[in-house]
Amino acid sequence: MGKSNSKLKPEVVEELTRKTYFTEKEVQQWYKGFIKDCPSGQLDAAGFQKIYKQFFPFGDPTKFATFVFNVFDENKDGRIEFSEFIQALSVTSRGTLDEKLRWAFKLYDLDNDGYITRNEMLDIVDAIYQMVGNTVELPEEENTPEKRVDRIFAMMDKNADGKLTLQEFQEGSKADPSIVQALSLYDGLV
């Protein structure tokens, strides 16, 4: 993909415009910024974590950033290329609610087996709590990752089998306004 070129080839721009919710001009602008920050044309896990640390200076986002990195890194080569970056950004910032929920499901399904187990969710929720640090005051019933996961599973795990399917996750998330709101945070920002 033209590693350190400051412009993408027209056919690449066209393809990314088809695969995302961005215009050709927006794709070019994002590429310019991506190459400025990642001259090699790729972003590794350490660089990704560094970006998260800028956004969450009062907590430790390392663990959460690693989980997000793994979802962005579609081809699992340990690096995020621009096409992976822009497609994930498109879903998280401008995707439909169902697209965002499928993306979030992939984030929580750490072993990619098609289910979110209690332990997988606990890993992610714990990482989120570490990331936000003491900057967020949580209600008593959610002031630990374990309590939050218990509440989520009580609401979403309809067949009580200890794991969530994509359908259970989507339906449960849509029924909880706070989850829908959290997924909409990026709307309109890009």
Score class of each variant (00 low, 15 high):
Asp187Tyr: 13
Thr17Glu: 13
Ser184Val: 02
Lys63Asn: 08
Leu183Glu: 06
Gly59Glu: 09
Leu110Phe: 12
Gly162Phe: 05
Phe34Asp: 09
Phe85Trp: 00
Asp123Ile: 15
Glu26Arg: 02
Ala154Gly: 05
Gly59Phe: 10
Gln130Glu: 15
Gly188Ser: 14
Gln54Lys: 08
Met131Thr: 13
Phe69Tyr: 00
Gly95Arg: 13
Ala65Pro: 12
Leu101Met: 00
Tyr129Phe: 05
Gly59Pro: 00
Glu142Trp: 09
Ser4Val: 14
Val27Thr: 03
Ile35Thr: 12
Pro139Asn: 09
Gly162Val: 10
Lys100Trp: 11
Asp187Ser: 08
Ser184Leu: 02
Met131Glu: 14
Val136Tyr: 05
Glu137Ser: 00
Tyr52Asn: 12
Asn75Leu: 14
Gln28Thr: 12
Ser93Gln: 05
Gln54Asn: 13
Leu89Gly: 03
Glu142Ile: 06
Ala182Gly: 08
Ser4Ala: 07
Leu8Val: 02
Arg148Ala: 09
Glu141Tyr: 04
Phe82Trp: 03
Arg18Lys: 03
Met155Thr: 08
Phe82Leu: 14
Pro57Ser: 03
Lys147Leu: 09
Val132Trp: 02
Tyr115Trp: 08
Lys50Phe: 03
Asp126Glu: 07
Leu97Thr: 04
Asn5Lys: 14
Thr135Ala: 05
Asn143Ala: 14
Tyr21Gln: 08
Ala182Pro: 09
Asp157Lys: 14
Tyr115Arg: 02
Leu43Trp: 14
Trp30Met: 00
Val132Gln: 00
Gly114Phe: 07
Leu138Ala: 02
Gln28Asp: 13
Gly95Met: 02
Asp111Ala: 11
Ala127Arg: 08
Gln167Arg: 09
Ser173Trp: 02
Leu189Val: 04
Val91Ala: 08
Gly33Asn: 13
Ser90Tyr: 13
Gly133Leu: 04
Trp30Ile: 01
Gln29Cys: 05
Ser90Lys: 03
Val180Glu: 15
Thr117Ser: 06
Arg151Glu: 14
Thr117Ile: 11
Lys19His: 15
Ala45Phe: 06
Glu120Leu: 04
Val13His: 12
Gly133Ser: 07
Leu43Ile: 02
Asp150Gly: 08
Pro177Gly: 06
Phe55Pro: 04
Asn159Lys: 14
Asp123His: 11
Ile124Met: 11
Gln54Trp: 01
Phe85Cys: 09
Asp176Gln: 15
Phe34Trp: 08
Pro10Gly: 10
Arg148Tyr: 03
Lys7Gly: 00
Leu110His: 13
Leu185Met: 02
Gly114Asn: 09
Ala160Tyr: 04
Val190Glu: 02
Ser6Cys: 04
Glu168Trp: 11
Asp157Trp: 00
Asp176Lys: 08
Glu140Cys: 02
Ile35Pro: 14
Ala127Asn: 01
Leu166Gln: 06
Glu14Leu: 11
Arg79Ala: 09
Glu140Asn: 02
Asp187Glu: 10
